[in-house]
Structures are given as structure tokens and as C-alpha cells.
Amino acid sequence: MKLCEGRVAIVTGAGRGLGRAHALKLASHGAAVVVNDLGSEASGVGSDPSPAAAVVAEIEAAGGRAVVDGSDAASWEGAAEMVRKAVEELGRLDIVVNNAGILRDRMLVNMTEEEWDSVTRVHLKSTFAVTRHAADHWRSLAKRGEVPDARVINTTSHSGLYCNVGQANYAAAKAGIASFSIVAARELQRYGVTVNAIAPRATTRMTQGLREWNEEQLRMRDPDWVAALVTWLASPESKEVSGRVFEAWGYGFTVAESWQHGATAEASLDPTEIGARILDVHRRSRKNAGIDLGEELDP
């Protein structure tokens, strides 16, 4: 059974890694795909149209439909061009998978302004820009009485959710994407659009060198596990699921349950009365969750 037959998807950063896996899996389930990729290095430097072209060729060789898009997903004009290309060249737009990203890891005290700006731009601004133009298209359809059955799937990260040392720029952008996804889900539901986010654990060029993985871990970190969840979330079957953040890898698909209220201290207008109360609720509240399941972190 093909879950996305007749649907049209945009996948950003689709030339390699997770984006490539998403594009191929969506195409294998009947979706036509706008394969967007600048073809830059993992750090965001340079450009190369060949990775996106290779993915399109692979989709077409398997009997699917796809077009190359070399737009900068983080530019307002580039995001608008992607939506235009989907509608005009592939006939419609049903799915947006915001996957584009780069890494510029550095400890906070050594991080430059450019390293901060470039990472937050590619991750967070591109997610906003592409979603914004797609949402405008779907709102226009809804106003004409054509209720969409549309999907946005954004890419957050365990670093953003659970705060990895040495990635202040990346974690801030990815945490922003998680919150953005929940807000967007609430705002766009009236137009027939669901919005979810995934926090993938996959081995790609962006994770190379982080640590050594054994054979089982490599198998469980194959991008195809994540692409399977993305494809289901992109399908009509997922209509009731929106505003969720999912952790995804071969070991399972887990709902990340957002911030929760902890213990509460009685308020006071006098700062001298607050200290003992705050120390008490600090001790009684749960520690921040860590990246590993069940792990807790001290601040």
C-alpha cells in the first residue's frame, strides 16, 4: 500500500543523509517530490547541484516524479520559489519536510557571531520561511472552499530538546523549531494543516566523528527508520496527530513530552523572603532530562 499516492512534497536539504532518505521514501509511497538542496558542505560552505540531481534521477529511475530545486531555503525568495515550483510544476502541494541544516559547533565562550547567525538562519529561519509560504498557499485554498489535507514535518534535535554541550547555536535553533512546530500546529489547524516535529537519531555526515558505533547501533541509526515515520506523518493516515515532537530511530518512536510544571513556591514581593522557598522547590523538582533515555542532568 502506498501511503502518499498523488501527494506532492517539498523536502529541504534532500540531497544527502536524512533529507535524501525522506525524499526517496516519500517517492516510494507515491509522492512527487521537490528535492531542495544547495549542495553545501556540512558547515554550510559552498554549493553543488549534483546531490539533488542524483536524488531526482534515482526517484525517476524508480518510476516516480521529482524536480530539482537549488533555492536557499532560508531566504524569503527561495522559500517562495519552492512552493511555486511544487504547485506549478508538480500540480499541488500537500507536504513540507523542513530538514535543511548545518553545523558550526563551538563552546559558547569561543563562538563567533557568524557561527551563531549562520546556524540559526539555516535551521530556524528556513523552517519558518518555507512553512510560512506553504501556509499562505494552503490558507488561500481554504478561503476558496478547498480544504487542504496538508502536513508540515519539521526537524528538531535531541541537542535542542536536551541541551548538548558545545552546541549553543544548534541547540537554540532546534529548540526554537520544536516550539515553533507546536505554535504552528495550533494556528494552522483551521486550514486543514497538521504540524509535527521529529528529533532523529541517525548516522549521517553531520554526526560523523562524534563517537564510534557498533554494528547494531549503526543499523538502528539508519536514516530509513526516521524516513518511515516522516512518510507516515506525511500521509492522510496521520490527520489526527498534530503538535507533537517525536524522537525517532530504530529502537523506537517516542513522544517528547515538552516542558512540564514542577514544584511551586509561594510568591513574595520581598526578595529577602524568597531564597528558602526557591531552594526548596529546586530540590523537589525533577532534574532536566538528558539525551539518553532515563538520564537526568544537573544544571
Score class of each variant (00 low, 15 high):
186 R>L: 01
238 S>Q: 04
244 R>C: 13
113 E>L: 14
231 T>L: 04
195 V>G: 07
198 I>T: 08
183 V>W: 07
229 L>G: 08
224 D>P: 05
129 A>T: 06
185 A>R: 08
109 V>H: 15
203 T>I: 07
292 D>V: 14
51 P>L: 05
259 W>K: 03
135 A>S: 13
21 A>H: 10
182 I>G: 02
94 D>F: 01
164 N>G: 13
271 P>I: 07
33 V>R: 03
247 E>F: 12
298 D>R: 14
286 R>Q: 14
252 G>P: 01
232 W>V: 01
228 A>V: 13
123 H>D: 09
114 E>N: 11
131 T>L: 08
137 H>R: 08
80 A>R: 13
180 F>D: 01
204 T>N: 02
199 A>H: 03
281 V>G: 04
237 E>Q: 13
135 A>I: 13
59 I>S: 02
32 A>L: 08
42 A>M: 15
222 D>W: 09
132 R>M: 13
201 R>Q: 11
149 D>K: 13
43 S>H: 11
71 S>T: 09
284 R>P: 05
15 G>P: 02
289 A>E: 10
72 D>I: 00
20 R>Q: 13
277 R>E: 11
48 D>K: 04
248 A>S: 15
14 A>T: 06
33 V>S: 05
69 D>S: 15
217 Q>C: 05
96 V>R: 08
57 A>F: 06
103 L>G: 08
233 L>W: 04
69 D>K: 10
152 V>T: 05
78 G>R: 14
267 A>D: 05
81 E>T: 13
236 P>R: 09
269 L>F: 08
107 M>V: 12
142 A>H: 09
247 E>Q: 15
127 T>Q: 11
156 T>H: 05
151 R>S: 03
3 L>Q: 07
132 R>L: 14
57 A>M: 10
147 V>S: 14
107 M>E: 07
290 G>M: 06
189 Q>T: 14
260 Q>S: 14
135 A>K: 11
258 S>P: 00
223 P>N: 09
25 K>F: 02
154 N>D: 06
151 R>D: 00
146 E>Q: 11
156 T>P: 07
136 D>C: 11
207 T>C: 10
180 F>Q: 08
128 F>D: 07
139 R>S: 01
135 A>M: 09
256 A>H: 05
128 F>G: 02
209 G>W: 04
273 E>W: 02
83 V>D: 04
181 S>L: 00
268 S>Y: 03
280 D>T: 14
252 G>L: 12
1 M>W: 00
1 M>V: 07
105 D>A: 15
90 L>R: 11
47 S>G: 12
272 T>F: 07
256 A>L: 13
202 A>E: 04
148 P>S: 05
244 R>S: 14
55 V>R: 00
128 F>P: 04
140 S>R: 15
258 S>D: 08
206 M>P: 06
63 G>F: 05
276 A>I: 06
115 E>R: 12
117 D>H: 13
95 I>K: 00
58 E>H: 06
262 G>I: 08
235 S>Q: 00
6 G>R: 11
146 E>W: 03
89 E>H: 09
225 W>Q: 08
291 I>K: 10
144 R>W: 00
24 L>T: 09
9 A>Q: 02
48 D>Y: 02
159 S>L: 09
221 R>N: 15
234 A>M: 02
285 S>D: 02
152 V>H: 03
198 I>A: 10
86 A>V: 01
124 L>I: 05
173 A>W: 07
38 L>N: 06
